[in-house]
């Protein structure tokens, strides 16, 4: 999967959708709920279900990073699946919002 900046991906097992904010330094597999994500607009493969170990949830509007590859994604739809890269859970990026200026 080519995780280009700005590309959108949907979970194969729940409602989660993400947009790639920063592409990874090397090709990686992005997963949600224990299954590989698919390009938005593609039909997910049939018969795949959420893995119990990967159902911690993904919150709408939060950003997630994979430190080893530098991948950063933004959840544009939330859901029950947990985001991961090759079996490593992504970390929630702490928001450091600025005071409103405009």
């Amino acid at each position: 999967m080519e995780l280009k900046a700005g590309s959108r991906w949907r979970s194969a097992v729940d409602e989660v959708e993400v947009v790639v904010v920063r592409p990874p330094a090397q090709p990686v597999q992005l997963e949600c709920g224990g299954a590989a994500m698919v390009p938005q607009g593609d039909e997910p493969p049939a018969g795949v279900t959420i893995a119990a170990d990967w159902s911690g949830g993904t919150a709408l509007g939060k950003r997630f990073v994979h430190e080893a590859s530098n991948l950063e994604v933004l959840a544009v739809k939330g859901g029950t699946g947990t985001l991961a890269v090759g079996g490593e859970a992504l970390e929630l990026k702490g928001a450091k919002p600025l005071p409103a200026s405009d």
């Binding site: 509007g61 950003r63 933004l74 928001a95 919002p97 600025l98």
Partner: peptide, 16 residues
């Protein structure tokens, strides 16, 4: 679009 979205993602907390 990328100029504006990156400014928003970097400075605003979603529904904060």
């Amino acid at each position: 679009h990328r100029h504006l979205t990156s400014y928003i993602f970097d400075t605003v907390e979603f529904l904060g």
